[in-house]
Design a protein around this nucleic acid. Structure first.
Lengths: 169, 169
DNA sequence: GTTCTTGCAAAAGCTTTGCAGGAAG
DNA sequence: CTTCCTGCAAAGCTTTTGCAAGAAC
């Protein structure tokens, strides 16, 4: 995994260079990992992925790089529960509905926040950016069953992901 | 602060007794603290408040009690940023708009979530419970200024609180 | 007396920081 | 050669846990 030349990766590396950042080995692999990540990786899973290519890579380096990528606007992190944060590419930013019991994640169309955002703007001149936190609740199957305690603190890898379709009736 | 007999406190103590819980000294003081809390206390600030009356009270006891009160549905916690969680009485549950730069908190009318909740229900049969996480964004003054890094991880006591009025045009 | 709570101490989980050596440009 | 990045080690902060002594009923 070195000369893959994924165009999305190249674009991000260019943005790094444009910010006077250096294109290091770790950074290349991390960016590649973010680009090819299907879902929402935690810092920890990214450490694992990067270390598969660069065994010496250190957790703190990953955290520092994620911070920088986020400050450059390339990456965004979100809190989907009580556990670690999830990182994904900024262009893929979307809001999540997360079930408090079974931790199913549903990607919600961003338009659904439009009305709320409009009101927040007209009443408070507050610009809503609804990507950082999930919207919690209960999914169909868990809503009917008796209230169990929240599962949000446990292993993120157990989460089920549901892809949201775009707007519809 | 012992025989204040605040009726709201009495009601909560009754609910504790109803759940076969014991009304201990620490619990009484904690419940009183939650009832008379103006804003959104963190576990840490609650420890401080309780220790003012019961100096020997331990952090872990406060955490355990907050957990129990939450499981009984009397208390709710919310994540308003990267720092510690905020606790408040369940009846006062409301959604927060939190500015990413200056951490101003705005209490948002719960009705504003109605449309989104309705859509989540009809599309996914997902029951939205929008109290757990804040809705992030930028307040008027910070929206205009150049993007500074997020302040959400710093001292919660610096937060400014704005009381939301109920629904309006 | 029995069961539930507490204090204490320790640890867990996620993330951040200081520093000196090493790589990128 | 200068500046930025990295690994290492340590600590930070919030929260959780095990256990034996103590309080509530």
């Amino acid at each position: 995994m070195d000369e893959e030349l994924d165009p999305a990766v190249e674009r991000m590396l260019d943005r790094i260079r444009a910010s006077r950042g250096r294109v290091t080995h770790v950074r290349k692999v991390l960016v590649q990992a973010l680009v090819s990540a299907e879902g929402h990786e935690t810092a920890d899973s990214l450490v694992g992925i990067v270390q598969a290519s660069v065994p010496s890579a250190n957790r703190s380096t990953i955290y520092r790089n994620l911070d920088e990528l986020e400050q450059m606007g390339l990456v965004v992190h979100a809190h989907l529960g009580h556990g670690p944060a999830s990182y994904h590419l900024a262009p893929a930013a979307h809001t999540h509905l997360v079930c408090r019991s079974c931790r199913t994640e549903i990607e919600m169309p961003r338009e659904w926040f439009a009305e709320l955002a409009e009101r927040a703007w007209s009443r408070y001149h507050f610009r809503v950016e609804p990507f950082h936190f999930a919207v919690l609740g209960r999914c169909e199957s868990c809503a009917s069953s008796p209230v169990k305690s929240d599962q949000l603190s446990s292993d993120p890898s157990r989460a089920v992901r549901i892809q949201g379709t775009s707007e519809a009736p």
